[in-house]
Simulated scan of single mutants.
Amino acid sequence: MIVSSDWLFRRLGDPNIRIVDIRGRVEHTEPRYHSEPELYAKSHIPGSVFIDWTKDIVDLNDPVPVNIAPPEKFSELMAILGISNDTTVVAYDDHNRMFSGRLAWALRYYGNNKGLVLDGGFTGWVKEGKPIDSIFPKYEKKNFIAIPHPELKRNADEVQFRSSNTLLLDGRRPEVYAKGFIPGAINIPHTSLTDPETGKFLSKEELKVSFKNAGVDIDSLPEKIICYCNGGVSATVVVTALGILGIENIPVYDGSWNEWGKDEKRPKVQLPNFGS
């Protein structure tokens, strides 16, 4: 699920590895979603290509923001970037590993199980004195066939009418969760799964403690788990953390609160005395 900067440094230039810069940010005000191509243009890990998470891997025709791109669009982008179904992809960002995690999940959803997250992101790479450049690389086009794996994605009805043995995890920050969440969802803030100083994921034991503090016993999980957030992006931080703990193939509710929160037919819960 994750690789260290040392691991990637030793493999710079490996033709079987594609490095993807997918830096961006999420604001509290509109417009909320931004990519950061200017940062990539200024400096990036040598050999890396850039993906705009707000446009390139989303369905711009879907009324729900940042839902995953359709197969044809995703296939074409990956092919242009020199990524096949068998290419190892190492993605990095500087927003708590959520965009790199989203790309890794999207790759798995469309049939590439070699999507990895760079632990510590670009900031960690630079802090460790590893090389950067500003060269825009070009790669030979490859063949990518996007075949959806529906077991990795959930829609609103599947969430609302989920079985009783399903654990629903909300990866948003506590103050956002408190304003409104899906009934039965447990808040496991994505920020509780990483070290604020290094940007790296916590150790396995520390991750177990974070989950336990949220009311989730990693050693006694139900049969099914679904993760969501505002747009199915920070939820992938939870997915990555679970993967580190050996719990894989966790589906994401792609529409998440962007869809659920605006649908008057969907039940919602707000924490009492919020904002008082």
Rank of each mutant, 00 (worst) to 15 (best):
G101F: 01
S276K: 12
L202H: 00
G243H: 13
K208Y: 03
H34M: 07
G120R: 07
D119C: 12
D14N: 15
G255I: 06
K212P: 02
D86W: 03
G232V: 07
M1I: 08
S134L: 10
Y228L: 04
R11W: 10
K153Q: 15
V252H: 08
L118Q: 02
R25C: 15
E197Q: 10
G246R: 01
N213V: 09
K224F: 14
L116Y: 03
H95T: 10
D254H: 01
V20L: 08
L242E: 10
N213L: 13
D52Y: 00
G243T: 12
Y253P: 10
P37R: 08
P63W: 00
D93Y: 10
N96I: 14
E223R: 05
T191R: 07
I17L: 11
T123D: 15
S4L: 01
S192H: 00
T166Q: 00
E205L: 01
T88C: 09
P183Y: 09
S48C: 01
K208N: 05
I68V: 12
W260K: 02
E206D: 10
P222G: 06
R10P: 06
C229Q: 08
S35E: 14
P31G: 05
S234P: 12
Y139C: 12
F122L: 15
P37A: 08
K153Y: 10
R266E: 10
A156L: 08
G115K: 08
I247A: 06
T54I: 04
E30H: 04
M78N: 04
R25K: 14
K262C: 00
S276F: 09
M98Y: 04
T54N: 06
Y33F: 13
P63F: 00
S84H: 14
G184F: 02
R23C: 12
P65M: 02
V209P: 02
V58Q: 00
G111D: 13
D56C: 07
K262Q: 05
T191N: 09
R25L: 15
P222S: 06
P31T: 06
Q270F: 11
T54P: 04
S100A: 15
E223H: 02
L60S: 13
P63V: 00
H149W: 05
V238A: 06
S164I: 12
D94M: 08
P150N: 01
L8F: 08
G275N: 11
D263K: 01
E76T: 08
F274L: 12
D52K: 00
D254N: 03
V26Y: 11
I226P: 07
N16T: 13
E36F: 07
W125D: 04
D14G: 11
S163I: 02
L193A: 07
G246D: 07
N230A: 05
L118Y: 04
E27R: 11
P148R: 02
Y228F: 05
S220P: 02
S276L: 11
P15N: 14
G101L: 04
G111N: 12
V49Y: 11
E248K: 01
F9S: 08
D93N: 09
A41T: 07
S192L: 00
A235I: 08
V209Q: 06
G231Q: 01
P65H: 02
F50H: 09
K200D: 01
I51N: 04
I247G: 05
S134E: 14
